[in-house]
């Protein structure tokens, strides 16, 4: 095999990904949605996706399949978003996160002694793997995420989606460590409650009915 042929062989899969406009448009749409959620700024989101796409295109040839390519694109996008969030702290005052919903009432979840209200006690979810394959689950997941108070959603996404460390988040949004822990605790309490009610308990109801 000549060098030119080898080249063609190696490039085959990647090049076909790049000419698949339906696949690319679909992935771009998903990336924009993800970036907008993290940055809450449509313009910045568009820019981040653009840069990630260009970066990913350069290396498209080294990917054998769509799944690997998509994972790679999202990894690049995550890095871009992390950079933007870190940089924001120095340019824009996002300190609007401040304190705020600190005095949130948790009495619907816990009784006066801090124990679970009977009907709020978490139930067993089982293995999440099968759940993740169901597209309806992701709609429930997104709805629950969007239902979080804005500050909680913000720090939760910075921590869990972009995987910033606690100290990076504290610096970016001007929070103390203990405030951050409080916000993340609440976001997880709410998110798990929502997913449990809207997905796991609904599911059980369906099973009982059928």
């Amino acid at each position: 095999m000549t060098d030119a042929n080898k080249q063609r062989g190696a490039n085959g899969a990647g090049n076909s990904l790049l000419t698949d406009t339906v696949f690319l448009e679909d992935i771009r749409r998903q990336m924009i949605k993800f970036a907008t959620l993290q940055l809450s700024d449509a313009h910045q989101a568009e820019d981040a996706v653009q840069e990630a796409l260009i970066g990913a295109m350069k290396n498209a040839a080294s990917f054998g399949g769509r799944a690997a390519f998509k994972t790679w694109m999202f990894a690049i996008l995550k890095n871009k978003i992390a950079d933007i969030l870190r940089y924001k702290q120095r340019t824009v005052n996002v300190g609007s996160l401040g304190s705020g919903d600190d005095d949130e009432d948790m009495s619907e979840l816990f009784d006066s002694k801090g124990y679970w209200q009977v009907e709020e006690r978490p139930v067993a979810w089982g293995n999440p793997e099968a759940t993740l394959r169901e597209s309806h689950f992701w709609r429930v997941f997104e709805a629950c995420l969007e239902g979080l108070p804005p500050k909680q959603a913000r720090v939760f996404m910075m921590r869990e989606f972009i995987e910033l460390e606690a100290d990076e988040i504290c610096a970016a949004v001007e929070l103390t460590t203990s405030n951050l822990h409080v916000l993340l605790h609440r976001s997880r309490l709410r998110l798990r409650e929502c997913i449990e009610n809207k997905w796991y308990l609904e599911g059980e109801k369906h099973v009982e009915l059928s």
Binding site: M73, A75, P128, F141, I162
Partner: peptide
């Protein structure tokens, strides 16, 4: 489980067309 879900979501598992 939440961490497994968020990691999957951040890899683009969510938001897919039906």
């Amino acid at each position: 489980s939440l961490r497994v879900m968020t990691r999957a979501y951040a890899k683009g598992k969510g938001g897919q067309e039906k």
